[in-house]
Design a protein around this nucleic acid. Sequence first.
DNA 1: CGCACAACTTGACACTGACAAGATTGCACG
DNA 2: CGTGCAATCTTGTCAGTGTCAAGTTGTGCG
Lengths: 200, 200
Amino acid sequence: MSSSKASANEKSPSGRPYHHGDLRRAILATALDVIAADGPSGLSLRDLARRAGVSHAAPAHHFKDRAGLLTAIAAEGFGLLATALREAADLKEAGVRYVRFAREHPAHFQVMFAPELLRTGDLELATARALAGDALREAVAAVPPRGRGTDARLAGVAAWSLAHGFATLLLSHNLDDPLGDQDPEEMFRTMAAMLFRHAE
Amino acid sequence: MSSSKASANEKSPSGRPYHHGDLRRAILATALDVIAADGPSGLSLRDLARRAGVSHAAPAHHFKDRAGLLTAIAAEGFGLLATALREAADLKEAGVRYVRFAREHPAHFQVMFAPELLRTGDLELATARALAGDALREAVAAVPPRGRGTDARLAGVAAWSLAHGFATLLLSHNLDDPLGDQDPEEMFRTMAAMLFRHAE
DNA sequence: CGCACAACTTGACACTGACAAGATTGCACG
DNA sequence: CGTGCAATCTTGTCAGTGTCAAGTTGTGCG
């Protein structure tokens, strides 16, 4: 019965490598679902293994640790965020994309900013994070410096704080009431227009 | 020595700590230290029991669950935040106090906004949260409505997002570089002044 | 063809949260 | 002045978890 299991595993009946195909991707995908639903604390390597139909220690082979898995997710997230930010025309649009990223990839977003769950020294993570940081700074630098005395660093932190706070409160369901049925991105756009009026 | 400690415990004449003196408070205090150091995921009821010198199941008697303990912390946090916000003169000052609260009570702050770790239905939590919400809305309402078309709800969400994002990024060590040795509260004040210039 | 290596399994250990059932202790109340 | 009583804490246990070590199994590559 165990031999039939391999073929019973849907999708590609023939070409699929025997062991599992690509466990790494399967585990990552399931992990994202679980985190989006129950947060990082609801994640269990053994549960992921169970859902993938492999033995309990299989995940550890791809990601060493629980921290390793989360680090991989965070790195992937920073990569996705970097490309999303790069496509933005101006700073306000970058903010909108930041918020959109958080909504479309809530699991990535949560993990990216939970350093105590990550291997902060990880190289892949560090480079991905640096990439996203560059994209952010680039977006900030694009806005022409208004009145002297304003410093790009300050404006950058302000813009980041606004977008990050909005996204975080959104994900933790703290804006459900004030939003009503309004579109979050639209609301953020209005907010940004209000606050950065003279900065654009 | 231990007998005097029991009497030193204020408040209600009836329900009160007996054996340990004040286990509930001791556990809460230690829990805050642990969370501030390692995040909520680093928290273990058994470890808390060990540090308090009691048996492994003792904490469960005061806080039913792990979620119960965290819920108590969150409720306490919302209470502290509410009083901190009430003391603020204007909206900008409320923001500064929000940031200060996050820095002075990092454990509370983290737990307050991690709903998946909490018993969200808890009554004590709900009332404390409502209290803090009122304080926030009050601070927002205090700023005179400028140009027509601006809506207090929007300004409130904007102010909250800015303060919350700044505080969150601060605690997750994402502003270490841009800050340098600058005082976070001072930087926030500058940011708020810049963004809310015409709103004050 | 065969062999080394990556992918996975099996087994074990220490740790955790949760529950149940008992022991201790000081307070209320007769 | 007891004596019941309930709050507090202990002991014991169970299922679940992360992690390590050692085996097994296919697969691709020389």
